[in-house]
Amino acid sequence: MNELAQQIVSGLATGSIYASMALALVLIYRSMGVINFAQGEMAMFSTYLAWQFAQQGMPLWIAFPLTIAIAFAGAVALERVVVRPVERAAPLTVVILCLGLLITFNGLAGWIWGYTVRTFPSPFPTTPLHIGSAAFSSQDLGIIAVSLLSLGAISLFFGKTKLGLAMRAAALYPESSRVLGVRVGWMLALGWGMAAAVGALSGLMVAPVVLLEPNMMQGILVYAFAAAVLGGIDSPVGAVVGGLALGVGLNLIGAYVPVIGTDLQLTTAFGIIIVILLFRPAGLFGRRTMRRV
């Protein structure tokens, strides 16, 4: 029983990382109708920045917020300069552009910091937390807490603030929003910024676990795809639920189903993506779309 509880908690921890990443993907999907394939590599690059700051002796409580701020500003700039010219192009043009960004960020990180695997400082204590007779890793609990707090903040932002409302309006009804004076282009850029900030946060949380290297987010991105598809790719709530469910599910499978184990987790994620897209393309929380011809 204790072991099961521990497995579930560590599943929730990885799951909340997938959830953050999936939410980043959903934020951009809702406003542009495309998947930002570069989301993972942008997060990886931000994480390297934080590592660089920490190397130079900056305390983590400054380095991490600074990194997130840079990720936000960088992505806003990226949207304005690079993505904006293709905003109205066919989705596949945007997909290929995002692939270009993916490859570029991956290469830049390799160029600047090399391909050596590095350890990454964890902001959480290493001593486990005892609840009853079960011991939970403080790192896992910290990851869950930070992720849930940030996801809560984002949902409050979209639900309760005027800017959040404007961003939702710009995503759903760009033309009417423009008429009402919402600066739709800037709302898209803000969406990119927020997605990158959430992504950077998940990179910072996952780096102590998977270790820092230029390809560290590729697997995470695929799990986030699976989470977003599972929850419904246009649903922020779905992304979070999908991420947590996937994290717990994969962790339990890894622990209790030796045939799949940990080697085939990515294959399982691929399988989940295919099965969901085939049989329930709207996911658990997504809207079903109809198309007139």
């Binding site: 192009a89 945007v94 290929i96 552009l97 270009g100 960004l101 490859i103 991956n106 390799g110």
Partner: peptide, 20 residues
Amino acid sequence: PSVVYGIALVLFMIFLPGGI
């Protein structure tokens, strides 16, 4: 190579828009 590939893809998509 990655950096060159990546930037080339981005530039191609931006300067030759209008659907893939």
